[in-house]
Design a protein around this nucleic acid. Structure first.
Lengths: 128, 128
DNA sequence: TTAATTGTACTATATGATATAATACAAAAC
DNA sequence: GTTTTGTATTATATCATATAGTACAATTAA
């Protein structure tokens, strides 16, 4: 798990952490049942506060991507167990994001085929 | 131009404004050369501060989507004139966003075909 | 020429999110 | 019993966001 965090960027660290971990799970680099680094470990590695990492874990937990337990630590959830907790509105969120990316791509001169190829490539990176 | 702004949401208003206008231009609802509402007009309609709208316009201007001029107001730029101002890093930005969306989609059980169909549909909404 | 309108700048202020530091706790493993 | 886990707490600092009010240069319309 390599976490690319931009400390000087505009995106909050705990959001970047959440995103990187979601991508890690999606790619299969983090398998279901696998343990995430402890908050103290990850905080130490990145040079951030433990609460910042904890906040990222809480977010991932609330979205159903991981489970956390005292002593056991944070564990990646099985994909099918991704409850309907945060499922409401997800579809709309996805469509909205894709609409924005499409508009930007269009205005920057990307052709339909190029855009769709990037979409295919991105999805192809995920899972086995 | 219908602008959906979520005042209680977590995304800053001026960012939402920027996104909605980009989508509007992408869809062709805002044609090149067309005037955007004045900052005072839009601010009044939405019930926000003029500087908030101005900030959105400045962002759009810095990205090359619009031009602003005193008295003339804000005008949508021709698509091809979208300079290479903010072009640097755009490709990486797009790929990064698509990677995140792909990971989330995968983990939520979306099949490749369904994801790609949503991508196609989103792009199809753009332009003529 | 005069009046009005444009985006923008400026100051001051308020609020909330983000992040840190340091400490502590309940629960479980060893 | 000791250690390690995520988490809670308190206090603090900083930055982004947003507002209010005012003003200005430039330009259009009267």
């Amino acid at each position: 798990m390599i976490l690319k965090i931009d400390m000087s960027g505009e995106i909050p660290i705990y959001i970047q952490l959440r995103n990187e971990i979601v991508k890690g799970i999606g790619r299969g680099e983090l398998a279901p049942g696998e343990n995430l680094p402890t908050v103290r470990q990850l905080a130490s590695e990145l040079g951030v506060n433990t609460m910042t990492v904890s906040k990222a874990y809480q977010l991932l937990k609330s979205e159903g991507f991981i489970e956390t337990d005292r002593r056991k630590g944070a564990v990646v959830k099985p994909a099918q167990a991704m409850g309907e907790a945060a499922e409401a509105g997800y579809r709309e969120h996805l469509e909205d994001e894709l609409e924005l990316l499409s508009a930007e791509a269009k205005l920057r001169g990307l052709k339909r085929e190029d855009f769709l190829r990037l979409c295919e490539d991105a999805f192809a990176e995920m899972g086995v």
